[in-house]
Simulated scan of single mutants.
Amino acid sequence: MKIYLDPGHGGSDSGATGNGLAEKNVTLAIALKINDILLTEYRNAETRLSRTTDKTVTLQERTDDANSWGADLFVSIHTNAFDGTAYGYEDYIYSGLSDESVTALYQRIIHEEVIKLNGLRDRGMKKANFHVLRETVMHAILTENGFIDHPDDSAKMKSAAWIEQTARGHVNGIAKCLGLAKSGTSSYQLTVDGGQIGTYQEKADALQLISSHWGAFQTAMIEKR
């Protein structure tokens, strides 16, 4: 399964700033850790990043690259800012998608897994007309990992342990969405309405996904691989 990781901003575009931090650096740290965990711990994960260093990449370049590569999932990683009073985690999918779409299902799964580990206030699941959500041809989600101008959220961002926990929350969600299999294990492929959702290490995990979202599709098939 191909996962495209998009650390927001970079280079001449610092993104949001606050409390001695720049968004472009926090997002890159999270993305690199997600990439490391995926490649180290899962045998059927292939990754690509819009940037691996502090360089400028346009929004069009990001989506063009992901589309031409043929990604299965696009994850854009950001931090938020407002006026120093707002705080917490939220994520977005494209505003043109229904709540019954597979992308919305992926959002619910990733949101739940990230919130379990990041220690941030839950600001909910949202939709927006962001370029990276609109112009990607695969399932796409954008995560806003705290408010960089809030003292409590930014203090967490300065912690390597928080970066790792936030990354692992993303990975846990991605793995559930795509059914990534741990290295050295057998797996079960899940197909919903004729399209492959992912490959799961445990059959019970595939069954749980089916039962939890029974109304979102018509047919489901599990095949041992």
Rank of each mutant, 00 (worst) to 15 (best):
D83C: 05
H170I: 00
T52R: 04
N80I: 06
H139E: 14
Q196F: 11
L180F: 13
N145T: 05
S186V: 07
I210W: 01
K33M: 06
Q189V: 15
Q196S: 12
S12I: 14
L59Q: 12
V102N: 08
I77F: 01
A167T: 02
K182H: 15
G96W: 10
K182A: 13
N129H: 05
D91H: 03
N118V: 02
M125R: 15
N67I: 11
E202S: 07
Y42N: 02
A220C: 01
L105R: 08
G124I: 00
I141W: 11
M157R: 03
A29C: 09
K126P: 00
L133R: 03
S68K: 14
T166L: 07
R168P: 02
I93C: 03
E223C: 13
K126E: 10
S12V: 15
L73W: 13
A16H: 04
S154R: 06
D36C: 08
L21S: 02
G119S: 13
V171E: 01
I148Q: 01
G15D: 10
Y92L: 05
T199A: 12
L73T: 04
S187C: 14
L209Y: 07
T103P: 09
N25P: 01
L190V: 15
V26P: 00
L120G: 01
T17K: 08
A160H: 07
K158M: 11
T103I: 00
L97Q: 09
I210Y: 02
Y42G: 00
N44C: 09
H131K: 08
S50E: 08
A16D: 09
Q165P: 09
A86H: 14
G96L: 09
E223G: 12
A181C: 08
K158H: 13
G215W: 11
V192Q: 06
V57Q: 11
S12W: 13
R123L: 12
Y188N: 10
R43H: 15
V137F: 12
L105W: 06
L5V: 07
Q196D: 07
G124Y: 04
I109K: 02
N25S: 11
D65K: 13
I93L: 02
G96M: 01
G10N: 06
Y89H: 10
A140Q: 07
S98G: 14
I34S: 01
S98C: 04
M1D: 03
K156C: 07
D122M: 11
T199K: 14
A155F: 02
A86K: 11
Q60V: 14
T219G: 06
F130V: 13
M157P: 00
R43W: 13
K116L: 12
R62P: 05
N80P: 11
Y89R: 06
H170W: 01
G215Y: 08
L39P: 07
M157T: 01
G20P: 08
A31F: 00
I37K: 03
I37S: 04
L28Y: 00
D152W: 03
G84C: 08
G84D: 01
N35H: 09
A167D: 05
L207C: 12
A128K: 11
